[in-house]
């Protein structure tokens, strides 16, 4: 039986297997169809129907259950989340696992298309060490400045945010992995 206790390790192994067997495009389709439209159907429905309130309800519940250390804030026109200790990537790092080139991309892989359908765009960075930030706001508009303002919860203020050995992946007004801008900073 494949279990849930080591699920993140299995999931990373699966991403590498799918990409090796069927190619990158198939993996991108997997993120969209198997995760966004199947296993995360509740998230899709919540966010599509309730917008920012749905994001609050979904991520508050799910990340608490997964044991994440994160903060969130929202306004009438945005939802922001700062992940300080990702339970999923953290599991891989603590167990010294790295089977797939960019495990962190799977979040953008399913959240991006979901947000597109719900009418939102994403500003996001991840540092491949269990830390990232996300701003969701209306598609087709610039993100509200208040959403991008740095406060004490901004994960980028951490001393360990930057690491010369690990690139930071950046997305602005994005809705999928192909929208990745660079791997710098």
């Amino acid at each position: 039986m494949i279990g849930t206790y080591d699920f993140c390790a299995h999931y990373e192994w699966t991403f590498a297997w799918l990409e090796k067997q069927f190619g990158k495009e198939f993996l991108l389709s997997f993120f969209d169809e198997a995760i966004h439209r199947d296993s995360q159907l509740k998230a899709k429905n919540l966010i599509t129907e309730l917008g920012f309130e749905g994001m609050k309800e979904y991520w508050g519940h799910t990340l608490d259950k997964e044991g994440a250390e994160y903060t969130w804030r929202m306004g009438p026109d945005y939802f922001r989340m700062d992940m300080h200790d990702c339970p999923s990537k953290g599991f891989l790092m603590r167990n010294e696992l790295e089977q797939h080139a960019d495990y962190c991309d799977h979040c953008m892989g399913w959240i991006g298309p979901l947000m597109k359908e719900a009418g939102f765009s994403i500003d996001h960075q991840h540092n491949h060490r269990g830390q990232c930030w996300w701003v969701f706001s209306a598609d087709g508009e610039d993100p509200p400045s208040v959403a991008l303002e740095s406060d004490e919860n901004d994960v980028r203020r951490r001393k360990d945010w930057d690491d010369d050995n690990t690139p930071v992946d950046t997305f602005f007004r994005a809705n999928g992995i192909p929208d990745k801008k660079n791997q710098t900073e």
């Binding site: 279990g3 849930t4 206790y5 080591d6 699920f7 390790a9 259950k65 997964e66 044991g67 339970p87 599991f91 603590r94 167990n95 696992l97």
Partner: peptide, 10 residues
Amino acid sequence: PYHDRKPHGY
């Protein structure tokens, strides 16, 4: 082979 901080999977 692998361990999590939580006692049970999600």
